[in-house]
């Protein structure tokens, strides 16, 4: 459980994070989205006490991160930038990290196995590929078997197999009841992994809702229809004031209407339907719309809760 209240970070005159409030709940994956410079990494750094908030506060598991007696058991973090000494082997890095908490070789070997680093654990990090560096970062994050995981761009540089592995891992961690906060620029990946979304833009929260809500609310609901007699269906719907837009492939898109309504209209007229699909658009579409509008949101009244 991560809880931020009025969290603010200013670098000189630039405001990186602008008084945000949010809660990241355990048991699900919360996606952290936003354009570069939106304040995602700064927020993550403040959660684990690397950066000091200019105003406001953030707690993990009910306490400020610094107050925990076993920080590695509380939070496992993978930061965007590299955080390993390149002259040390992966094994020694993990051993040194664990040693601060009395976490020994057995657990170090375990996370090495878990992240598939066995073959390179004895090599110095200097020679690691981006993907191996990410795996080591994830191994460090898992070392303390933490209740909360904060992963900044974990799939960055991973091959498709690695991407899939991270997805499975992250879903598994949330299923175990852990709190997971995850950032990524890969929308398709986020759509498959996250349950809840927090979208940041210029240091403010643009959206904080379950992922399906974000997508449907932002994109609106559209229904795709396919029927042999499209002209007649269009005429029937037009009688009720519903517009139908014909697509090049012979189907039609109908906006702002439920599939039930279309199906019933067609049935009443004895029209056969070959397809009736709800198209909610992609997360990417929603994200683009949201972040393009961020200027509007900045001038609007503070948004704590959006209407559901």
């Amino acid at each position: 459980m991560i809880h931020a209240r009025g969290l603010t970070k200013k670098y000189g005159s630039r405001t990186a994070v602008d008084g945000i409030d949010f809660t990241v709940e355990p048991g699900r994956v919360t996606g952290f989205l936003g354009p570069n410079g939106a304040g995602k990494s700064t927020t993550m750094r403040m959660i684990v006490g690397l950066d000091r908030p200019t105003e406001g506060s953030v707690t993990v598991g009910g306490h400020p991160y610094r107050a925990h007696r076993a920080p590695l058991r509380e939070v496992g973090v993978l930061l965007d930038a590299k955080a390993v000494h390149s002259g040390r082997t992966a094994y020694k890095h993990l051993l040194a990290m664990g040693a601060t908490h009395g976490i020994g070789k057995a657990r170090v070997h375990e996370v090495i196995g878990l992240t598939g680093l066995d073959s390179v654990a004895g090599k110095r990090v200097k020679g690691f590929s981006l993907g191996m560096g990410q795996r080591l970062g994830i191994a460090s994050a898992l070392l303390g078997d933490p209740a909360t995981l904060i992963l900044d761009e974990p799939v960055n540089g991973l091959d498709p197999e690695g991407v899939r592995w991270v997805r499975t891992l992250v879903r598994g961690l949330a299923a175990e009841g852990r709190t997971v906060l995850l950032s990524s620029h890969l929308m398709s990946e986020m759509a498959q992994t996250a349950d809840q979304l927090i979208v940041l833009g210029r240091g403010r929260i643009l959206e904080n809702a379950p992922i399906e809500d974000v997508i449907s609310r932002t994109n609106g609901t559209t229904v795709r229809v396919r029927t042999p007699d499209l002209a007649r269906l269009a005429a029937l719907l037009a009688g009720d004031g519903i517009a139908v837009s014909r697509q090049p492939d012979g189907s039609a898109q109908v906006s702002a209407v439920t599939p039930e309504r279309i199906g019933e209209t067609a049935a009443a007229a004895g029209l056969p339907l070959h397809e009736l699909t709800v198209v909610s658009g992609s997360l990417e579409d929603a994200y683009m719309t949201l972040t393009a509008d961020e200027v509007e949101y900045r001038t609007a009244a503070p948004r704590k809760e959006t209407a559901r």
């Binding site: 684990v48 006490g49 690397l50 991160y65 610094r66 925990h68 920080p71 590695l72 939070v75 973090v77 930061l79 930038a81 955080a83 390993v84 890095h93 990290m97 601060t100 908490h101 460090s140």
Partner: peptide, 8 residues
């Protein structure tokens, strides 16, 4: 960053 997250 690793060092200071382990020993905040």
């Amino acid at each position: 960053r690793s060092t200071l997250t382990a020993v905040p």
